[in-house]
Design a protein around this nucleic acid. Structure first.
Length: 848
DNA sequence: GCTCGTCCCATTTTT
DNA sequence: TGGGACGAGC
């Protein structure tokens, strides 16, 4: 069956035509060298060919083989080109040959990228399936899809090859799995499975797993995979770890994965690179197929991704890479800035377009960011500019310690929320606190909880990485394929069935000696009564349940959603969490519901399992106005009117560890992180640092970050009162001698005092407090109290059992002002705002 | 096999 | 300081 000569423009016509007829027959007009032809498609066929439901690659291969004639294509009224600046327009319209789009922060990168795809489609230069467009995140892929749809005026469903590196590669790999010894229904392991597997291998190799933890091996192997190194290609110099058995373990791990018909994230790309290198015919097909390639966030590509791209682009070289070398912050994960720096060498004659007009931030913010990043060497170089002339300088403030920093930011957030210094009130959704490391978040969470400021933490464990989701998935995996040993290991004793290490060893031994899967091994154990009492009974029941579920999956007797619910129910897993009285239990049950809901979007369990590990998001769209707290890494790609950047202290940011491990390279990456942080801000950017901070329970003092010295003074307003720390600084002090002046704050005896327990009684501390208050840095507590709803407190009585979203269950032991004093079962005694507390008996109703 | 106490160690984490 | 891993004891 051949279907070709269609662009989305035509697709639109076809839809309209059908809409008018209301029939089930599609009409498609082909204009190509073969002349005009009219074909009839059924709706199902149409969807099939264009990948709207299940995409058939064979059809598309055929389609791609037919050259497309552009002359017959109607040129669209290119309304989508309006509103592009000259650079963007150049990036959009230079369709042939390699293009590097250097897009600074906030310069309309996504706009240019999506318009470029639209342009390819609308001019008939390429058909949807001839475009390969890769991103790093599902979010970015979704965004691109919807924006292209917006530009085209139609939902774009027919772009089968727009997705993340991993989803696109997984799709390819399912097609060619047998070339690397896999079956096309291979499972994709998550990190947890990976580590459990490696642990087994380490123990089997007789290596001390304490000295060489599985986590480390996992990191090392991931690193090799990121570099596209198969076990036979790992350089000798890299093989010192694990008693020189690292490479051996890697090879063993890869063999084990093949046995399990499984891959890890790294393999998805590595296998495809291997296939392309070894099977020219396959590569050739794809090369002809993907006539245009687009890559988002090119600076974040690792070696494997780079090789994959180069192989695919090698023949036609119509590759457009978009990125910003200044925002490369994933080097520690294998990303190679070198890829983007080398682009012009890799693709001679490459057209480089710089997007430098920023539409996000004020000039001061841009200047500050530029000032910092200028210290990096070996940049491709961009100068961001804006037509804006308004805006505040970047604000800089020092604090005595981390707690005060959190307190100050809390108050500042509340002030902005009310509207401050003539500025309009700002919603909490428009403010963000960006930290270097996630442990810094705690200070803010504690503080915000205390003052009753709603916040949301972005990041943290992904939805599908949560324990309960993995457990549930393991049950589903087993129901679909009983030979999934890893899944069996995971759930055999979850919920508790009295099947501990010994029972599991018996099962494994039996399975191994009979050459069968663990489920079959378990069956033999039951039959041979190789276990005693309770364990045997439970195991027999489990094996029986698994059989039943598997039969139901095959019979398709129930819908997969009902089946999933049944599995969770009958396994006792739902009940397990219902009986669990820890504060997390309600949330976990909620997550399980979410998981079942997510199933509805798939046709069956198999389909769900094949894709879910690549596409499940953590986007539980909580509604409500909340300040966001997240890491700088998580903030990439986002923007907020007001941004707080706390913890700018040497050692914390830039992180000591980065500098120790990667030297100048590490420092430069940290600096890019600073650049990313500053450029997230649209209107107000506040950088802060603390002289003292409790790290692992120890007080430590630190120098202000060297990045603070790099902020150009003309664009910075120092909020810290002059003379506060005994150094004559402020704007003038900074000008005189930036670094020593800022460092002066901790250079005195206060420094030493910080280490002692009576720090709060030190003269320096008292001086700081009184000055802070004089200058309005800390808002008097009376003022804050006025905004608190006192009735909330009165809703509780002493002795009442309550539930708190963070601290769990506890008992009210008193009421002090606007706070409840609660003795928590787990967390001890705390003062908390009533707003976050409910009666214990209502705890189940609250969707915390 | 489970629970509790002790000890150890601690970035960033798109898939 | 606090969470996770592990080993001793029930």
């Amino acid at each position: 069956m051949v279907c070709h000569g269609l662009t989305l423009l035509r697709l639109r016509c076809a839809w309209q035509w059908v809409g008018a007829s209301g029939g089930d027959i599609f009409w498609a007009n082909n204009n190509d060298e073969n002349g005009s032809r009219t074909r009839l498609f059924t709706r199902a066929r149409w969807r099939y060919v264009w990948g709207m439901s299940s995409f058939s690659e064979d059809d598309a291969f055929e389609a791609a083989a037919v050259p497309l004639s552009q002359r017959a294509m109607a040129r669209p009224s290119a309304a989508y080109l309006d509103g592009l600046n000259p650079a963007q327009r150049e990036a959009v319209e230079t369709l042939s040959g390699p293009v590097l789009m250097l897009a600074g922060a906030g310069t309309g990168k996504t706009k240019a990228l999506t318009t470029r795809i639209t342009h390819l489609l609308a001019t008939g230069t390429a058909r949807p399936h001839e475009i390969l467009a890769v991103t790093f995140t599902n979010k970015a892929a979704r965004e691109m899809k919807s924006r292209i749809g917006g530009l085209m005026g139609e939902a774009v469903e027919g772009m089968p090859w727009l997705g993340t590196f991993h989803s696109v590669c997984a799709k390819q790999l399912r097609r060619h799995a047998e070339l690397v010894g896999l079956k096309s229904n291979f499972t994709i392991l998550d990190t947890d499975d990976q580590i459990r597997l490696m642990k087994q291998l380490i123990e089997a190799a007789g290596i001390d797993h304490k000295r060489w933890p599985a986590r480390m091996l996992s990191g090392i192997i991931d690193g090799w995979k990121n570099k596209a190194l198969t076990p036979d290609k790992v350089p000798v110099a890299d093989s010192g770890a694990f008693d020189h058995k690292g490479v051996e373990l890697y090879a063993a791990y890869q063999r084990r994965l093949l046995d399990l018909n499984a891959v890890d994230f790294g393999d998805i790309l590595l296998h495809m690179v291997t296939i392309f290198q070894k099977h020219e015919d396959v590569l050739d097909q794809y090369q002809r197929w993907f006539r245009y390639i687009l890559v988002d966030e090119y600076q974040d590509t690792n070696v494997a991704q780079y090789m994959w791209l180069r192989l695919l682009a090698a023949s036609h070289k119509n590759v457009c890479c978009v990125g910003d070398d200044d925002q490369s912050i994933y080097g520690w994960r294998g990303a190679e800035v070198g890829n983007i720096l080398r682009f012009e060498k890799d693709f001679p004659g490459a057209h480089v377009v710089r997007l430098e007009e920023n539409y996000r931030s004020t000039p001061h913010i841009l200047a500050a960011a530029s000032g910092v990043i200028a210290a990096n060497k070996g940049r491709l170089g961009k100068t961001l500019f804006t037509s804006r002339t308004d805006g505040e300088k970047v604000r800089l403030i020092g604090h005595w310690d981390g707690e005060e920093e959190a307190r100050w930011i809390g108050e500042e957030v509340e002030a902005m929320q009310r509207g401050t210094r003539g500025m309009a009130p700002l919603g909490l959704d428009h403010m963000a606190i960006l930290v270097r490391a996630s442990h810094q978040m705690r200070a803010f969470e504690d503080r915000f909880l205390t003052i009753g400021l709603p916040y949301r933490v972005i990041g943290g464990p992904r939805f599908y990485e949560r324990m309960e989701i993995r457990d549930a998935m393991a049950y589903f995996r087993l129901a679909v394929s009983p030979e999934d040993d890893l899944a069996f290991e995971r759930i055999v004793n979850t919920p508790k069935r009295g099947l501990g290490d010994k029972a599991i060893q018996t099962i494994q031994r039996t399975a191994r000696s009979n050459g069968v899967s663990l489920v079959e091994g378990a069956r033999l154990v039951c039959q041979g009564k190789l276990l005693g009492g309770k364990g045997l009974k439970e195991l027999t029941f489990l094996v029986g349940s698994l059989d039943r579920w598997h039969a139901q999956v095959r019979a398709e007797a129930d819908t997969h959603v009902e089946l999933a619910e049944m599995i969770l129910d009958e396994s006792g897993y739902t009940g397990f969490w219902q009986n669990d009285k820890t504060p997390e239990a309600p949330g976990r049950l909620e997550n399980l519901k979410e998981l079942v809901k997510a199933l509805e979007n798939f046709e069956n369990l198999q389909g769900f399992l094949e894709h879910v590990s690549l596409i499940m998001d953590n986007e539980t769209e909580e509604q409500g106005e909340k300040v966001s707290i997240m890491t700088l890494h998580a903030a990439k790609g986002l923007e907020f009117p007001a941004v707080f950047l706390p913890g700018w202290e040497d050692g914390l940011f830039p992180s000591q560890r980065s500098m120790d491990e990667s030297g100048v390279k590490g420092l430069e990456e940290e600096r890019r992180l600073a650049y990313v942080g500053i450029t997230r801000a649209e209107e107000i950017c506040t950088v802060s640092f603390a002289a003292n901070r409790r790290v692992y329970g120890q007080w430590q003092s630190a120098m202000p970050s060297r990045f603070i010295d790099e902020l150009p003074e003309d664009h910075v307003e120092v909020l810290t009162p002059p003379g506060l720390y005994g150094g004559g600084y402020g704007a003038a002090g900074m000008a005189a001698s930036a670094s020593p002046a800022m460092a002066g704050m901790v250079g005195s005896d206060l420094h030493e005092k910080a280490h002692s327990a009576d720090v709060y009684n030190s003269p320096g501390w008292r001086r700081l407090q009184s000055r802070s208050q004089q200058r309005g840095m800390a808002m008097p507590s009376e003022a804050r109290n006025m905004t608190i709803d006192m009735t909330a407190v009165s809703a509780f009585t002493e002795g009442e059992r309550v539930f708190h979203q963070k601290f769990g269950y506890g008992e009210v032991i008193g009421i002090e002002g606007d706070k409840l004093v609660i003795e928590f079962d787990k967390a001890g005694s705390k003062h908390v705002v009533a707003q976050y507390v409910v009666s214990a008996d209502k705890a189940d109703d609250v969707p915390f």
